[in-house]
Design a protein around this nucleic acid. Sequence first.
DNA 1: ATTAGCACTCTATCAAAGCGAGTGCTAACA
DNA 2: TGTTAGCACTCGCTTTGATAGAGTGCTAAT
Lengths: 341, 341
Amino acid sequence: MQLDERKLKILQAVIRNYLETGEPVGSRTISKYTDLNLSSATIRNEMADLEELGYILQPHTSAGRIPSDKGYRLYVDELMQKEREVDEMKVMLLEKEEKMDQLLKQVAKVLAVNTNYATMISAPSYQGNKLKFIQLSRVDVNQILAVVVVEGNIIKNNILNLEAPLDDETILKLNILLNTHLSGLTLEEINLGMIAKLKQQAGIHSKIVGDVMDAVAEAIREEEDLQIYTSGANNIFKYPELSNGEKASEIISTFEEKQLLTSLVQDTLEKSQEKGIQIYIGAETPVQSMKDCSVVTAAYELEEGMKGTIGIIGPKRMDYEKVVGTLQNLMKQLDSIYKKT
Amino acid sequence: MQLDERKLKILQAVIRNYLETGEPVGSRTISKYTDLNLSSATIRNEMADLEELGYILQPHTSAGRIPSDKGYRLYVDELMQKEREVDEMKVMLLEKEEKMDQLLKQVAKVLAVNTNYATMISAPSYQGNKLKFIQLSRVDVNQILAVVVVEGNIIKNNILNLEAPLDDETILKLNILLNTHLSGLTLEEINLGMIAKLKQQAGIHSKIVGDVMDAVAEAIREEEDLQIYTSGANNIFKYPELSNGEKASEIISTFEEKQLLTSLVQDTLEKSQEKGIQIYIGAETPVQSMKDCSVVTAAYELEEGMKGTIGIIGPKRMDYEKVVGTLQNLMKQLDSIYKKT
DNA sequence: ATTAGCACTCTATCAAAGCGAGTGCTAACA
DNA sequence: TGTTAGCACTCGCTTTGATAGAGTGCTAAT
């Protein structure tokens, strides 16, 4: 059996209607709602076919139909209106110099308020970026501060405890040594051989060099378990199908233990090569606890190849068109903020 | 009418029973539960009195009684067993050098898992601490990095954009200028007059000084909206009286917008002078959205006078004794971690 | 002062009944 | 052959009424 034009139209009508109301859709509703001018009986026959094909299903006999995951999938792939007016969403323009996390939190929040869904945003990860600057300074008689700056102005600090005091001149020398050898290198290029060479040159101060390198390594490591911000988790209470205790609890947990969203971020980044915006319907999601939701994600890229992801989490009957539109809109704005520098 | 011994015992029995079951408690239950050897009829009379006095209330006629906020208050103030065995709770010992936020998250989580309530912990705030060190370094042709270190090794970075390049010597001079005048001062002592004087001394570079002072100011400001970590928000779903959509949503929101908990932190810090552990029952809480919960908080103090707070949020019928015990236990452990350095 | 006893109240639970929405099928129709 | 009117049927939701049970307040006896 094939999906002819008419079946598609009916499926579309069912889904549209269900997205709006959240209630199973009956044949009579379709018969009036569409411009097909077909009686409910005809619709019924077609709907029986659609059910057999797996695009819609009945919660129980003598109820209307609701879309299945397969139905939603067809809808977002083929049937969805690609362009639609989207409410203009103003991201408050933040100075680029402002702390990145402020901006991200802000974006997540604006998005949550605008869409009425839960949102997440992962901070751009800086893999492959170059070391820009290292500075050691004494802050106390037996402590020095190591500041590591990576391209993109990511700054990491570490306090190092000294065994024996260092005089100012030595610190200066170490600074020069470190900067001349390391700046401009990517974090990957700083390998053991290079470290050994540096230590050798540092002579009796090789321990300090080792400690600094550990600080650099930690800067990398910390960046690896990436930061994720969320907002609007309470929006899920707006959708009865998600707000029963069991499911709500699961979703809230995931939002609290943000690291559980990592797989979502990874998957989005991988797939973002092929397609800008990614839609996960129900069980398609890489995060188990969201199998009753749909998740729409996009990868964004700031200058200098820093990539992060934005995600919107809602019920399966989310307004995909609006969400996709809003997300595209947001991308543009992020772009413009970071281009106009 | 006064609360004699017997009334107190009955009130205690009602509350104990209600804490366990969460169901209204009837006179017959009390009659058997206690060692008073009184008939249910007598209990009924006494309970009628207790209700008139406002310590207990009936959800509806012909239901048992439940404690009122006033009843709980009396209970925690007077009736509660002060000492009780508490499950030993191991806080994973983290190296002191480890990042503070790791430790805090860990503590919040352990506490949530152990108590089955929602928890929050605020990072210690460093008000009144002294400026230790300021360092300007050039990271780019027109950017300098300002690092501000406050006592307690709190470090803040800011990138400043220059209008005109600065030579190394000038940067060095500025460093000396700033450090000689500012280090050792508390953040409050750095007032406008002092800034003006510095600017004057900096001559043509007064703009830089101004920018650095802004950076310092921002370091303060950022520290002010203090960091709060939460865990176990989903635990509230374990208590039916809190997991209805409306209330749950409100609580979850508060946990997401952690800044809403600030007033709780403030209040705890203020009151911590008089009493170690603070209990807010229902409407007593400074955070409006938790009026249906009880909140138990404590202020902790790490070395160097850094104070933060820990809070446990649960239903009014929370196990106060256990929670208080657990909290005291935790305090001891935190102490020992930070004492043994 | 305490308590046994009783009438009363209120809720929760269950079954029966009716309603309404929706279906599938059949037969008639164009 | 595709469409549609009609009809019997199913199922869930809501209402209703009856019942049981828990608990109370009051009174009268101890």
